[in-house]
């Protein structure tokens, strides 16, 4: 039973359990059908709704790996949608591809700048990440409100709709975009030295610097990327409903992203990170949201239900619980050496 000790084993069990629970309730839950030339079904809904959170969590994974945290992503999501929709809404030709491209360009450039701002506060001025990004988290929604003038901005623009609601070769465009960016980041961090450098900065910034690692630029880069990814997520969220809601777009998405990272097994203390784990974490969160609706859980106990699932997933991953489950009494040591002989695990 060696695979039960893989760090993604329990999160994957949780994901499968959720899918099974839904399938028992609705037998054709995993069924797909062709609808207007694209795939349609619950799995597609989960994929499409996961895309924004996946991007935000991807940036968050990198930031957390450097021992940081980015609380401003939710506000950046709101700003991104507000800028893009205000621009398209006030242009003379909202339906033109060129208008949409310019809007997307402006929004993403601004979000990148906001990410750079966070990175500057953290890497150059040395402000604690939680404080540095709290600044933008608080001020960001105000900025988004100013841009939308306190209204929910709505538009009609076919090209813009594609980002969050379009399909290509039968799959949602949003998950294709998120998937492509994920693959790019995975290749960059796992096939080049970048991943190791990020981890070394997270484990010990000072030692890495003395060893010749450009820790300042690495930290700066991950915050800038986090801002950019949150910007893309903001475009998807606003495109999904064709409206920019400065108050509610991306509200608490930073917490969901941190949760996804933690479920995926990346430690908030920095260092080793798992991109695959983050993906599993995102799918668990999104499936959980859908499960609440499908099982018809009463809104008043929804938060409790979600909390129980999350605490269960996190608990089975805790070293002390895993050791107990695999080899009797916990050991006092901090590190958890794998038991030498394979032991039966009651799964």
């Amino acid at each position: 039973m060696r695979f039960t000790r893989h760090r993604l084993f329990w999160p994957l069990v949780a994901l499968v359990a959720l899918l099974v629970a839904n399938t028992i309730n609705t037998p054709d839950f995993l069924g797909l059908r062709l609808q207007d030339g694209h795939l349609f079904g619950a799995p597609i809904d989960i994929l499409r709704n996961s895309a924004p959170l996946l991007l935000v969590a991807l940036g968050m994974t990198l930031v957390i790996a450097t021992r940081g945290i980015d609380l401003s992503v939710g506000a950046v999501v709101a700003i991104s949608g507000a800028v893009a929709l205000s621009f398209i809404g006030s242009s003379s030709d909202p339906g033109a591809l060129s208008t949409v491209l310019v809007a997307v360009g402006i929004a993403l450039a601004l979000c990148f700048v906001l990410g750079v701002w966070n990175g500057f506060l953290v890497s150059v001025l040395g402000i604690q990440p939680i404080i540095a990004t709290l600044v933008l988290m608080t001020a960001g929604r105000g900025i988004a409100m100013l841009i939308t003038e306190g209204q929910i901005t709505t538009i009609n623009s076919a090209p813009y709709r594609v980002i969050g609601g379009g399909y290509w070769i039968g799959l949602p465009v949003s998950i294709l975009i998120a998937g492509a960016i994920f693959a790019l980041v995975a290749v960059l961090t796992r096939r080049t030295a970048l991943g190791v450098l990020i981890e070394s900065v997270g484990i010990n910034p000072e030692a890495s610097r003395l060893a010749g690692v450009q820790s300042r630029s690495i930290v700066w880069t991950v915050y800038a990327l986090s801002g950019l990814f949150a910007g893309i997520a903001g475009l998807m969220i606003s495109s999904n409903v064709m409206a920019a809601d400065a108050n509610n777009a991306g509200l608490f998405i930073e917490l969901d992203a941190i949760l996804a990272v933690v479920i995926g097994g990346t430690s908030l203390a920095g260092g080793k990170f798992s991109l695959a784990g983050t993906v599993v974490g995102v799918f668990i969160i999104q499936t959980l949201t859908l499960t609440v609706t499908i099982l018809g859980i009463s809104p008043s106990i929804t938060p409790l239900f979600k909390a129980i699932v999350v605490i269960a997933v996190v608990l089975v991953q805790a070293p002390i619980v895993r050791r107990r489950m695999s080899s009797g009494p916990p050991r006092p040591t901090q590190t958890a050496p794998a038991p030498k002989t394979p032991v039966e695990v009651a799964a």
Partner: peptide
């Protein structure tokens, strides 16, 4: 203009982060 103003105002607001929130007027 509006965006530039908003961003500028935003950065000014960064100095007093706690005031945050959105009033739009």
């Amino acid at each position: 203009k509006r965006t530039v103003a908003a961003v500028a105002a935003g950065f000014m607001a960064l100095g007093l982060a706690a005031c945050g929130g959105g009033d739009g007027g």
